[in-house]
């Protein structure tokens, strides 16, 4: 009789598996690698945290290292992000999106998407840090803003900055500070969603 036993695929795509098993550009302390800029995002409360270091030469990311506390898809996302970012101009790297990371990984399950969101945020934080340390103007900060509250013209970047600094950690605080959602109120759900996302990314331990 025919043998009809079942065999499952691995949890994630083969590319994720490869980057999980053989992560690229890990920040090994013994290597003595010095970063020009460092960015760290995530929180242990949510179970993932990433630190990205970059070296910059001629306006490009010449080398990159990272560390991740997180699950397999978080490790693979950071590894893939590091491969994508290496060689990019700062401008290109700043605009690297979570979608580019997940596409390069061959996709991630829906509930794992936030792992890739952390990767590009950490990279951006590292670029911010590099520009600040070297006393250069930061032409990127704020350029990727999208208007969330149309009535009051409040952008996602404004919300992000307020959450990141710890100034506003509730919807009420955000609304009081920026006026968001005080007119038609249709953006309320989206603001709360963003608030939760940014809290997840920037919450301190």
């Amino acid at each position: 009789m025919e043998n009809r036993s079942f065999m499952a695929q691995w949890v994630y795509t083969d590319t994720v598996k490869d980057h999980f098993m053989n992560p690229r550009n890990i920040w090994d302390e013994k290597e003595g690698w010095k970063a020009d800029g460092v960015g760290e995002v995530g929180s242990l409360a949510c179970g993932d945290q990433m630190r990205v270091g970059i070296q910059v030469a001629d306006g490009k990311i010449s080398d990159i290292r990272w560390l991740t506390y997180g699950c397999a898809s978080a490790i693979a996302s950071t590894s893939m992000m590091s491969e994508l970012a290496k060689g990019m101009t700062l401008d290109e790297a700043y605009h690297l999106t979570p979608q580019m990371i997940t596409d390069s990984l061959g996709g991630l399950p829906e509930h794992k998407f936030h792992c890739s969101v952390l990767g590009d945020k950490a990279l951006r934080a590292a670029i911010d840090d590099y520009l600040e340390k070297t006393g250069q103007p930061n032409p990127y900060k704020g350029t990727i803003a999208r208007i969330i509250c149309e009535c009051k013209g409040v952008t996602d970047v404004q919300i992000e900055e307020l959450v990141k600094s710890g100034e506003c950690l509730t919807f009420e605080a955000l609304s009081a500070k920026t006026g968001c959602s005080t007119a038609c109120g249709k953006c309320r759900g989206r603001i709360i969603e963003l608030l939760e996302d940014y809290k997840h990314i920037y919450a301190k331990d």
Partner: peptide, 14 residues
């Protein structure tokens, strides 16, 4: 401490 569970689980699974 310092190591996340899903990663440990999947490396053990390998």
């Amino acid at each position: 401490p310092g190591a996340e569970g899903e990663s440990i689980l999947l490396y053990l699974d390998m």
